[in-house]
Each structure stands twice: as structure tokens, then as C-alpha cells.
């Protein structure tokens, strides 16, 4: 606990950034090494656990994607055959398309709603603790129950939604048998399950915003909306980045909702088949582990590309502005 104080990241540097170049003497280097030791110890548990428990399974599944294996018997190498099959597999590309459509349909409204809810709950309105619990409940409602509830609510002929729509003089929508109906229903389920979750992340982030900024805004006579857009959003940027990245990963690996709603088959015309549902289908109902692995690694590539794009889009000019006020002024001339 008495190790020498380590170097601190420069507050205004676009994080994460290495310390600016200095002329290192040998003694200085040695001292720096000693200073850095606690930092490496601090980050080491994750990497150690990953090396022990994560690396072997990953290598194994990479190898599997070049083989044909049914999950218990002989493994035979087939070279690139699984990937060749994948490139020309209409069902896979259909699943890719579905995944992206559902991802856009769900993520965008979900994150906006979550931010709005968090902002509202952060105001001093009454019953906030009760509301928090309410928005939390979708996270713990069991899957079996969800299957029955959503199946009943969105049923084509007998569902509550269609009953309400016909009562209002609208046409009933074949929610669970038309390509768009299926996608919208799945997106609705994702929004239902994860809006509260993201709102809770935002809420946890909002509470950490230094309140001197709100004081300043008050003095300037800013409106609630101005406070939201000028202060809350910029300061929440690192957390928004986090939710965008995790929603991207979560959205691209969407599985539970379509499976709960439509079973392993992805619904009529496979309109609700997502990449991971297809992967599950191949690996755990067809027991084609080789192809399942190839699908998984194809998804890894797609997700990596999108994570990078999202990171660039959201973090913009680095997450500098989201730092402390001083840093903010500095970086904005």
C-alpha cells in the first residue's frame, strides 16, 4: 500500500493515451517499472483468468471451424469447407439481414428511451424507488413466462394487441407470421427487456455527474432540455459509448428473444432467425459443431467491425469532453 505513486493520465489527453515521450534514463525507467507494478497487478486478474479458462476454449473453437464434428465422436479436418459453405449459405445471410434489422429497430429506440427514463428518474420526482423496481422487473421475469405472455399478447388471431387494434377500427397485423411483424415483435421484446437495464446504467452514471455543473447551468438560466443536451449528454458520453458498444454486441448476438418467441426455427420463412439462433440451431439441434464454430467466428468479425465503427462514431473526438470541467474547457479552446 505504500508503493510509489504511479503516473497519472493527463486529464486532457484523448484516453487511453500513452504518456508523452520523455527522455528516459535507465534509473527513471527502473523507477517507472516499480511505479507501474501495482497497475499491472490491478489489471492482472482478468488476464490471468482469461489465459487459464478462456484461451483454450477459444483456440479449440477456432480449430473446430476447420473441421466437421458432431460434438462427441471423431473430428475430421475439412479445411475451409465450412467457411465456403457459409459464404454461399442463403440461410446465414438471411440471418445476418434479420439481425441487423432487428438490431436497428430495437437499439435506437431502446437507448433513447433508457436515457429519457434515467433522466426523469434522476429528477427528484416522487416514488422514484418504486419506479426503479418497476423498470428492473423485466430483467428477472422468467423466460418461460415471457414465452407465454408474448405469445398471447401478439397472437395473430387471439392476441391482446390485435384485439385492441380491431377494437380501434384498425386492421389486425399478423405479428407472428409476417416477416416485418416478426421483426417488430422481437424488437419490442428486446426494448421491453433492456430499456430498464440501460436506464439503470445511465442512472448509475448520472449520479456521478458533478453537480457544480448543474449549479452553473442554473445561474445561466438554462431550461431542463438545455441542461439535458448541454450538460447531461456530453458528460454521459463515456457511459453512452459503453451502452452503444454493449448493445451492439448484445444486438448482434441476439438469441433469447427470437428463441423464446418463435422456437429454434426462427418463425415463418425464418424471418426471425438471427445469427446466433442459427448458430445454436446448427450446433445444438443439428450437432454440426464445425459449422456452428464457423458461424460464430463470422459473427466475431462482423461484430468487431461494427464495434470499431460505433466506437469511432460515439467517441467522436475522443471522450475528452466527458471528463472534468477543466478538461472540457481546455479541449474546447
Amino acid at each position: 500500500m505504500t508503493a510509489a505513486p504511479p503516473a497519472i493520465a493527463r486529464p486532457d489527453a484523448p484516453a487511453p493515451a500513452p504518456a508523452p515521450g520523455r527522455r528516459d534514463t535507465r534509473a527513471r525507467r527502473r523507477r517507472r517499472r516499480r511505479e507501474n507494478l501495482p497497475l499491472y497487478i490491478a489489471i492482472s486478474p482478468f488476464y490471468l483468468l482469461f489465459a487459464v479458462f478462456g484461451l483454450f476454449p477459444i483456440l479449440f473453437s477456432i480449430v473446430l471451424s476447420f473441421t466437421d464434428w458432431d460434438g462427441m465422436g471423431e473430428i475430421s479436418f475439412v479445411g475451409l469447407a465450412q467457411y465456403q459453405f457459409l459464404v454461399t449459405d442463403d440461410r446465414f445471410w438471411n440471418a445476418v439481414g434479420n439481425t441487423f434489422i432487428i438490431w436497428i429497430l430495437s437499439t435506437v429506440p431502446m437507448l433513447f428511451l433508457a436515457m429519457a427514463i434515467a433522466f426523469l428518474l434522476h429528477q427528484n420526482i416522487r416514488f422514484t424507488p418504486l419506479y426503479r423496481v418497476a423498470f428492473f422487473l423485466p430483467n428477472v421475469t422468467s423466460m418461460v413466462a415471457m414465452a407465454i405472455v408474448f405469445g398471447s399478447v401478439f397472437s395473430d388471431t387471439f392476441g391482446l394487441v390485435n384485439s385492441a387494434m380491431t377494437a380501434l377500427g384498425l386492421d389486425a397485423v399478423p405479428w407472428l407470421s409476417s416477416p416485418w411483424g416478426i421483426k417488430i415483435t422481437i424488437a419490442a421484446m428486446v426494448i421491453w427487456r433492456f430499456t430498464g437495464y440501460n436506464a439503470i446504467i445511465y442512472l448509475a452514471g448520472l449520479q456521478s455527474i458533478p453537480t457544480d455543473l448543474y449549479d452553473a447551468a442554473r445561474v445561466d438560466g438554462a431550461s431542463l432540455l438545455q441542461v439535458f443536451f448541454r450538460i447531461t449528454i456530453p458528460l454521459m458520453r463515456p457511459i453512452i459509448l459503453f451502452t452503444v458498444i454493449t448493445s451492439t454486441i448484445g444486438g448482434l448476438s441476439l438469441f433469447t428473444e427470437p428463441q423464446v418467441l418463435l422456437g429454434d426455427g426462427g418463425g415463418a420463412g425464418e424471418a426471425g432467425m438471427t445469427i446466433v439462433l442459427y448458430q445454436y440451431n446448427q450446433a445444438f439441434t443439428q450437432f454440426d459443431f464445425g459449422y456452428g464454430s464457423a458461424i460464430a467466428w463470422a459473427l466475431f468479425l462482423i461484430a468487431a467491425v461494427f464495434a470499431i465503427i460505433n466506437w469511432r462514431l460515439v467517441s467522436g473526438r475522443g471522450d475528452g469532453p466527458a471528463r472534468r470541467p477543466r478538461a472540457r474547457k481546455d479541449s474546447r479552446r
Binding site: L39, S208, A327
Partner: peptide, 21 residues
């Protein structure tokens, strides 16, 4: 990144507090 002010970390360092402290 948003909620721990660098000043705090900096002054802890000046006070000689180690990383874990």
C-alpha cells in the same frame, strides 16, 4: 472516466498515497 476527478488522484499522489490506497 467521468466521475473520478483527476485532481483527487493527483493530490493523493502528492500526499504519497500508493495505487491501492
Amino acid at each position: 472516466a467521468g466521475s473520478i476527478p483527476d485532481e483527487l488522484v493527483e493530490s493523493a499522489r502528492i500526499d504519497g498515497a500508493g495505487f491501492f490506497t
